[in-house]
Computed example of a mutant assay.
Amino acid sequence: MKKLLLPLGFAALMLSSCANKPQAELTLSGLNPADFKTEVNNQPVSLYTLKNKAGMEVCITNFGARIVSIMVPNRNGEMKDVVLGFDNINDYINVPSDFGAAIGRYANRIKDGKFELDGETIQLPQNNFGHSLHGGPQGWQYQVYEAKPINGTAIAMTRTSPDGDANYPGNVVATVTYTLTEDNAIEIKYEATTDKKTIINMTNHSYFNLSGDASKPVTDDILYINADNFTPVDSTFMTTGEILSVAETPMNFTTPKAIGAEINNYDYEQLKNGNGYDHNWVLNTNGDAKQLAAKVTSPESGISVEVYTNEPGIQVYTGNFLDGTVTGKKDIVYNQRTGICLEVQHYPDSPNKPDWPSVVLEPGQTYNSVCIYKFTVEK
């Protein structure tokens, strides 16, 4: 095959032309929207950006309705990305993770993947110690939501889940609306309807690292949880049905303390069972989304996130199973405890514990849940 020789001047002109081609505009967090543009199951996937007048930026993909990045200022006014995730859609598709996802139909665990509804036993996919976790191996975090931008600070993501999806009954239409407020809060509203009696429990699964450096653990961060009680778990992370006091235990965060202060105290059975903190706290807020449910502060950056919700519980998970096998944004390896999840929810396995708040959704009813992540800076 003959080589095509170009005149030197022409080659230089071509190089100059390539160099002058406009580059894709990156987000403030350094993401390239082109790296998120694809199709999954013949449905379009993209990256969407919300910005407020204060300069805060939130990037979201409709694959799993996932928060990909959150840019907020630290105490020096420097913008920091405070959530874990990937910088391209292929990793979200190919690397199993819950980073930033809208979880459904049922967040957290259902024992043995079974529950009864009107006398009928329903068997769900089992994917975690024999239990069904986060909707099973094909939960909504791995599905495409229909994205409908509302304006520059709000977007709605809708998932239509057919009757029998992962064996859950009912045709369910669920919408997750993300709104970035002018006071640097992300308001997440969940709504869902069904044509057949079913269960639902949705949440957001963002991993926060408020230092803005995901190579560092979150164990020095200061955690407050507005809860006098929690639901203990067995060695398979399943709730036992008890509700216990946090008093005089490592589960007590009613007075703020470092996440890592007692996290490795495996003489305490609950920390051994959870491999650290991976528990549901019973909130004192009584469904009042105006009351502070939880707060985390990074002493290094000064960045805090406050959590508000109408849900009765919050699962606090300290990234215990991050093990260095996953590389995320900026080529940072995610090691153990480099993120904390603050998942507002009904309690795990509620369908099998009739004394706990109900997760049943009937035809004609609308499921409504709210989670607010408000970011502040402490000097």
Rank of each mutant, 00 (worst) to 15 (best):
N204A: 10
T203L: 06
P44C: 03
E378Y: 01
R337S: 12
Y317L: 11
L6V: 11
T203W: 09
Q123V: 10
N273C: 01
D165F: 13
S298K: 03
T27Y: 00
K53C: 02
V233C: 08
I259L: 13
N184K: 11
A147W: 03
E182Y: 09
T203H: 13
S215V: 09
I70P: 00
Q126W: 01
K80I: 02
N52G: 07
A214G: 13
V40E: 04
S206D: 12
G30T: 01
K21L: 15
V233I: 15
S17K: 06
N74Q: 01
L180A: 09
K3R: 13
A166Q: 15
I259Y: 09
A102T: 15
M56W: 00
K148E: 14
T160I: 14
E311Q: 15
N108S: 12
P73T: 01
D331T: 02
V95P: 11
E39H: 08
A293G: 07
Q143A: 12
Q126H: 06
W356T: 01
P73L: 11
D349G: 07
E306A: 13
T255F: 04
P125R: 06
D220G: 05
Q123H: 10
A258Y: 00
Y334L: 09
P299Y: 02
L322D: 04
Y347S: 06
S298I: 08
G212W: 04
I103T: 10
N209Q: 09
Y347C: 06
K37H: 10
P169S: 12
V359L: 07
Y334E: 07
G136E: 07
N280G: 14
A54G: 08
D331K: 14
L47T: 01
Q336R: 15
N128G: 02
P96Q: 12
V326A: 11
P232V: 13
V172M: 12
